[in-house]
């Protein structure tokens, strides 16, 4: 740098040419996914089942979170071959997970031409301190959060979509509710706050002031906000929608249940008709066995959600 006299300025340190994909286009796809269900799938066959059920996107991964939990070991980005096969099989958007902070996995996923990258705490961390600088990518990112501060930090890093983390692979909705309530509650507090107090509030939740102020004005997160981690029934999905989410991710809940196709279809319908108990009752009938689920009072259960800040 000293020799050439070249310096890079903030926002211009791009690895790839960024300007082709402005933030509006990145958020745009997430906006098209609103009111929809994004399902975890591990092969092309499951991707087809999800598409036929009416999923608005699929998340391609090697093992669903429940299996990651059961089998342990290091969970990484899926084999690109698998992602390609899934992409071939369906016409709906395909997402894939990269490890937190592992920007090379993200570069590979971008090159594969998938539609969204999930920088996910469900996979083993690659970097304990830093997330991926998502401004450097043309592909949009979705990131997890447990509270408002975490959500706004991710947005500042370039995430174009947020999902509350919940506790993936447990089939237990409690953590998802906790996180959604935390985000929504903080926003309600923020909305009633005097402008003078926002500086300290921003410091307290460790989030950038401008985004906190924007959130206050909007009364919601400035990007699309999905729920994730523990959705196992149509009622769970509708609960997330009534709490104010824009859509849901369903991980292990579908393909770890007795009749995946039927359950997937029911969850899709529940998200559209989330405030209509008549429809909810109808679609919840006779779905077969739900995934078994894990009681989260047990402190031996590893908390994926606490892996990143």
């Amino acid at each position: 740098m000293e020799g050439s006299g070249v310096v890079t300025v903030y926002g211009n340190g791009a690895i790839t040419e960024t300007k082709k994909s402005p933030f509006s286009v990145k958020v745009g796809l997430a906006q098209m996914l609103r009111g929809g269900v994004i399902m975890d799938v591990v092969n092309a066959e499951q991707a087809r089942i999800a598409e036929e059920a009416g999923a608005c996107a699929v998340m391609a991964l090697e093992r669903v979170p429940a299996d990651i939990r059961a089998q342990g070991g290091v969970a990484r980005m899926s084999d690109p071959q698998l992602i390609k096969e899934i992409k071939q099989a369906v016409t709906i958007p395909v997402m894939a997970k990269a490890r937190i902070g592992h920007f090379v996995e993200a570069q590979i996923l971008e090159h594969l031409g998938i539609d969204y990258v999930d920088e996910s705490e469900v996979l083993t961390l690659a970097d304990e301190d830093n997330h991926i600088n998502k401004h450097n990518f043309r592909i949009p990112f979705v990131c997890g959060c447990r509270n408002l501060g975490e959500a706004l930090r991710r947005i500042r890093e370039g995430a174009a979509m947020i999902r509350t983390k919940g506790e993936a692979g447990t089939g237990n909705i409690i953590e998802a509710v906790r996180h959604v309530r935390s985000v929504m509650g903080d926003i309600r507090v923020l909305r009633n706050m005097d402008d003078d107090e926002v500086f300290t509030f921003a410091k307290k939740i460790a989030a950038p002031y401008d985004l906190v102020m924007q959130t206050k004005q909007l009364g919601r997160l400035p990007v699309v906000h999905f729920a994730a981690g523990g959705v196992a029934t149509p009622a769970d999905a509708a609960l997330m929608m009534q709490l104010g989410c824009d859509g849901v991710f369903v991980g292990s809940g579908v393909f770890k249940s007795g009749d995946p196709a039927k359950r997937a279809r029911a969850i899709v319908q529940a998200v559209t008709h989330y405030s209509d108990p008549e429809v909810l009752a109808e679609v919840s009938c006779g779905l077969g066995e739900a995934m078994v689920g894990i009681n989260l009072n047990d402190s031996n259960v590893e908390r994926f959600a606490n892996r990143s800040e």
Binding site: K20, S21, P22, S24, V25, G28, L29, P93, V94, E110, G113, I114, D115, Y116, R138, I139, P140
Partner: peptide, 8 residues
């Protein structure tokens, strides 16, 4: 094409 080819 896919999201990478989305544009304004």
């Amino acid at each position: 094409g896919s999201q990478i080819q989305s544009f304004e």
